[in-house]
């Protein structure tokens, strides 16, 4: 929540002005919510064992953040600043309940695997952070752009981490066997040559290490991101 709320002033600004585009592209790289702001780390560790979970989680966060940002932006002039956190919580909680019910109804398997982590979107710092830092001080359209940018920034990190964890930890992508099968009796592919799945990839610390490697690559490409001490 380090950003100061920016005020948009010109009413005749085009929908896809440079500034609005920047709202979407910035969180993808140089202001990524996970790798730069280091928010939402808990869910990045918890639900990245499989790509499917990561995608569903990203979609849920996209839904909550998009509609949350729009709602808060619409209400921003009506919310008394002393109780704004409570109002924000009510908005995010109702949206999360909708997502949770939708998942339970249409994707029961994934919903079961994600378990409490859908509910924990409420406490995801990215969402409250965007409400507080952006939607409270900006119009609806830029707020929606900001929500899109941040949830895509969140999503690609999650999916990249989940890709490596599922591929190396279980030998599959989206449940499809890539390296073959390790089932005793019907082994095929790499497993017949002595390949073994990397159990550490399944453990949460490995997610942290992969996020760390992404941060490493990002900062060695863009030296401006390195903090001075």
């Amino acid at each position: 929540m380090s950003e100061v709320a920016e005020k948009t002033k010109a009413p005749s600004e085009p929908l896809f002005s440079k500034k609005n585009k920047k709202l979407v592209t910035d969180p993808l790289t140089d202001n990524n919510p996970i790798t730069i702001q280091v928010l939402g780390i808990c869910s990045a560790l918890a639900i990245t064992v499989q790509v499917e979970q990561a995608v569903v989680m990203s979609a849920s966060v996209l839904f909550v953040l998009l509609f949350g940002n729009i709602t808060i932006s619409l209400l921003r002039n009506l919310i008394p600043s002393r109780i704004r956190i409570i109002v924000q919580l009510v908005v995010v909680a109702s949206l999360v309940i909708i997502v949770n019910e939708l998942l339970a109804a249409f994707l029961p398997d994934v919903s079961e695997k994600l378990s409490v982590f859908v509910g924990l979107i409420i406490t995801n710092c990215i969402i409250m952070g965007r409400f507080e830092a952006f939607a409270m001080g900006n119009k609806v359209w830029p707020s929606a752009m900001d929500a899109l940018g941040n949830s895509f920034g969140y999503a690609w990190i999650l999916i990249v981490v989940a890709f490596f964890r599922e591929l190396l930890g279980s030998g599959t992508i989206w449940g499809v066997q890539i390296f073959g099968s390790a089932l005793p009796g019907e082994e095929w592919g790499l497993y017949t040559m002595g390949y073994v799945n990397n159990n550490m990839m399944i453990l949460p610390p490995m997610a942290l290490i992969i996020v760390g490697v992404i941060i490493w690559i990002q900062r060695s490409r863009n030296k401006a991101l390195i903090e001075e001490h």
Partner: peptide, 10 residues
């Protein structure tokens, strides 16, 4: 440590 946690059976 990496081997121990990654490939416990080995």
């Amino acid at each position: 440590a990496f081997l121990f946690f990654a490939y416990p059976t080995s």
